[in-house]
Design a protein around this nucleic acid. Sequence first.
DNA 1: GGAATATATGAGTCTATAAGCATATAGTCA
DNA 2: TGACTATATGCTTATAGACTCATATATTCC
Lengths: 104, 104
Amino acid sequence: MKDLLELRSDILKALAQPTRIKILDFLRDGERCVCEIFPAIGEEQSNTSRHLNMMMDAGVLSRRKEGLKIYYTIKHPEILQVVDLVNLIVEEEITGRHKLLKAV
Amino acid sequence: MKDLLELRSDILKALAQPTRIKILDFLRDGERCVCEIFPAIGEEQSNTSRHLNMMMDAGVLSRRKEGLKIYYTIKHPEILQVVDLVNLIVEEEITGRHKLLKAV
DNA sequence: GGAATATATGAGTCTATAAGCATATAGTCA
DNA sequence: TGACTATATGCTTATAGACTCATATATTCC
């Protein structure tokens, strides 16, 4: 049985990888099937599938089956809030560094 | 030069590890030196030092020197917001699973 | 049932990460 | 200067992660 610390790090791990961030960015607009996702992000089908399943296990995505296709969605709205906050931090880091460079 | 995608995943990576989450939980109340942090979280001094430096590089922590001691702080308030959101998601996941279990 | 399509998985490789132990570096104070 | 304390780093080992290629498992439609 996983403890809270593990559950927390599993969710963060599921967000902490470039390919998975590309997937999340693409899923912003709503649910998409694997066949739409992997060409959009420019990764192999098998690799994309693994990342999607990994994010499912962590509780970050949910999926819905429709015929042959499987549609993935971002499960919790808080996931997108996290992504947005991280984008904000990155901006602050970049402008922060810039200031330092100008100051020297 | 790192691109935005890397900067974003670096920040998330810096949060996505149990030992580092313990450090962040401990730094909630304000700045602490390494000598306070590693006994509090129950990790080795060298291991703790590495994690702290890793989080510094990612832009998650900042540090201040005072004599022999080095005090670390959480650099951006958004970091704590991210941690809180993740805690919320974990709660939702747990109660969500519970509901499902009860429903079966 | 057989062809075609969508998704998942097995096996292998390569790289990254975490941790421990020992040691180096740097600052303080007598 | 030398002893002492706080922090960082070199080296090693163990484990996990990401990726690719090939193949398996559905599901649909003829």
